[in-house]
Amino acid sequence: MSTILIFAFSKKRHMKQTILALGLFLFSTTLFGQARTIPSVEVFDMKGGKFNTSQLDNDGKPMIINFWATWCSPCKRELNNIADLYTDWVEETGVKLVAISIDDARNMQKVRPYVDGQAWDYEVYIDVNADFKRQMGVNNVPHTFLVDGDKNIVWQHNSYSEGDEVELFELVKKLSKRESIK
């Protein structure tokens, strides 16, 4: 695996190296690219305290990790729509939704007033410099991950359309019964 890094670290960038690096990468993903856990990254809770994402946990039950921002309309539509259903979801499956705000210094102080103002019952953290977003490979928000009871990331989805929460909950139900969703 380190071969990829060697290519990346070398100053001269040749086509051959790129092709070889990509080839090695594809080869290695077929060998190892199955398991995926939540990376360890420091984020802030809504009171400004530090929290390490490797501690995200739901006692063996599934988790939804949703990346959003206070300036992102589809994100807020998604989380507001789920908020209407959330009590039932938790009752039926024990699921926990963790909302990761990628608001930076411009808006981070508005996150808690918005979350409380909308009366969300989610666990919310602020990823102020996008470190967690980067580690999770998120291109843009909203982006949703599903984590199974063994804390493996088993599914992800980018963007939100009205009604996506229906599919999401079907998958959560399967995970809560420890069924595969592949």
Binding site: P74, N140, P142, N158, Y160
Partner: peptide
């Protein structure tokens, strides 16, 4: 078209500069 975390979009026309939100994503 979005399938899980893969997404393709095609657009045609004039666009002004700025934050552009459509089809569930802002960029």
């Amino acid at each position: 078209y979005t399938n899980k975390s893969n997404r393709i979009s095609i657009g045609y026309g004039r666009q002004k500069a700025g934050l552009f939100c459509v089809g569930g994503v802002c960029r």
